[in-house]
């Protein structure tokens, strides 16, 4: 209950109410309700096909919802294009497969949106980009192309690229699932660094250690629904739902 109070105190960053979405006959999301407070860090987990990626992608409208409503930073997501572009420039997203632009250098990847969307002068965009590249600890790679970097480096560039827009919310869609094991830590450390600065974030991940370390709340999804949500300590030590228990036992190998 303490949690709920804090949300109302600080105002909601994301408010999702009774969300529903289907792809043809497949019901990807049913009746999902979730509120994310300013500065809150949410980890969403669940088996594949549970709708967690779809849910996070509806927040910046890469997927359109069919029923229910989403309000992001006070703006409701509708078909109004202006509203969508405004929200997208305030919500950063990091993808499983990085999705860097291969024909642009690391620096250009980071300055593109600030220049074309935020209308920042070129020099200022460059300074911002270098600031965030230093933050993800790869300023020396600024002149290289994404294809010349390792997976972990690429994902850190992707994080820097999103941060260059100075977003108020960051969405991470399985940011470490496509990485070789030895590179997972460098990316998670970068995300933990961000979390410690108070960025609002929603992260879909299977990294339960990470969830335990940074999440304010863990949300477990299955079959397009939120099955259980709780603070990490309680979520991991005493899951209430059978499906949560099964999932945790599978993923933690217990």
């Amino acid at each position: 209950m303490k949690n709920v109070e804090r949300q109302t105190d600080r105002g909601a960053a994301i408010k999702i109410e009774n969300l529903g979405k289907s792809f043809g006959d497949f019901q990807a999301l049913r009746n999902v309700t979730l509120t994310v407070a300013q500065g809150e860090r949410i980890v969403i987990c669940g088996p594949s096909g549970s709708g967690k990626s779809t849910l996070i992608r509806t927040i910046n409208r890469l997927e359109q919802h069919q029923t229910g409503r989403i309000v992001v930073e006070g703006t409701e997501l509708t078909n109004d294009l202006k509203g969508i572009e405004k929200i997208r420039s305030e919500v950063g997203m990091v993808f499983q497969h990085f999705n860097l632009f291969p024909h642009l250098t690391v620096l250009e990847n980071c300055t593109l949106a600030p220049i074309w969307v935020r209308k920042l002068p070129r020099e200022e965009a460059k300074e911002t980009a270098m600031h965030f590249l230093r933050k993800v600890r790869i300023p020396e790679q600024a002149g290289k192309y994404p294809g010349q970097l390792s997976g972990g480096q690429q994902q850190r560039v992707a994080i820097a690229r999103a941060l260059c827009m100075r977003p108020r919310i960051m969405l991470f869609d399985e940011p470490t699932s496509a990485l070789d094991p030895e590179m997972i830590k460098e990316v998670l450390d970068t995300i933990i660094g961000l979390a410690n600065e108070g960025m609002t974030m929603v992260c879909v991940t299977h990294e339960m250690g990470f969830a335990q370390a940074v999440a304010d709340r863990v949300v477990f999804m299955d079959g397009g629904q939120i099955v259980e949500e709780n603070v990490p300590a309680a979520f991991f030590s005493s899951p209430r739902n059978e499906r949560t228990k099964l999932f945790l036992s599978q993923i933690l190998g217990q």
């Binding site: 294009l81 997208r88 420039s89 993808f95 999705n99």
Partner: peptide, 20 residues
């Protein structure tokens, strides 16, 4: 993923096509 990444950054349809 290319157009998704561009659109997630707030680039609209035309800028996404032209730049990415």
């Amino acid at each position: 993923g290319q157009s998704e990444a561009a659109e997630a950054l707030g680039l609209g349809y035309w800028k996404t096509q032209r730049l990415i």
